[in-house]
């Protein structure tokens, strides 16, 4: 079923929308949640919550790219769940590793200002991503949006893990410079 047809089901309040979403994007959403949470059970819960959020948000929303829309909901839910669980069980999943990598360039300064400016920060990140070449951008997004491991990225794009690491290192440095230039405190 095409994306717009599934969105139409949501707008018609037809519960088949959830079945179709699950069929088409269930595994995709679960893989996003799993990369963040590293738990099949929690990932499943996140995906189920995704359908609820999707049901609540359509209408009024009418996303053109349903996969990305559902993926964003899942990622957001998974990150929230991760934060709740972090105090209880900090493991060695990709989210922890990603946070450690980013803290190398961002530090742990108070983010009171950033709480107010998350939308602005997102816009800056979008502008920054546009400055990158396609390969570098894909590697960066796979790492920090999908939370894929370095080896998974190397496997997917058929490059060596060391090349992935080097690309990420350079991009993180560029991002830091870019954010400072944009007026953020890093």
């Amino acid at each position: 079923m095409e994306d717009f047809e599934i969105v139409e089901l949501y707008w018609d309040r037809d519960e088949n929308a959830i079945t179709q979403s699950d069929l088409k994007y269930g595994r995709y959403c679960k893989s996003i949640a799993y990369n963040i949470l590293f738990s099949h059970e929690d990932s499943e819960e996140c995906v189920n919550d995704t359908w609820v959020r999707a049901w609540e948000s359509m209408p009024p929303n009418r996303p053109e790219k349903l996969g990305a829309y559902l993926g964003k909901i899942t990622r957001n839910l998974a990150l929230n769940m991760y934060e709740k669980m972090k105090a209880l069980k900090r493991g060695s999943n990709q989210t922890d590793v990603c946070l450690d990598e980013l803290s190398e360039v961002l530090g742990h300064a108070s983010d009171v200002q950033q709480h107010l400016d998350v939308t602005t920060l997102t816009e800056s990140i979008n502008r920054f991503l546009r400055t990158l070449d396609s390969e570098t951008r894909k590697i960066f997004v796979r790492r920090y949006w999908y939370m894929s491991s370095v080896n998974e990225i190397a496997w997917q794009y058929k490059i060596t893990p060391s090349k992935v690491k080097m690309s990420l290192l350079r991009t993180r440095d560029k991002l830091r410079t870019y954010l400072i230039k944009e007026g953020f405190e890093v």
């Binding site: 990305a68 990598e101 980013l102 997102t122 999908y146 954010l179 405190e185």
Partner: peptide, 26 residues
């Protein structure tokens, strides 16, 4: 800035970047 803030801010990056990085899956 906390890295968590950056990861959260990345959630709403443009759809095109998300799809571009995951073309095979899409």
């Amino acid at each position: 800035m906390k890295p968590e803030t950056l990861l959260k801010a990345m959630n709403d990056i443009d759809d095109e970047f998300i799809i571009e990085a995951d073309k095979q899956r899409f």
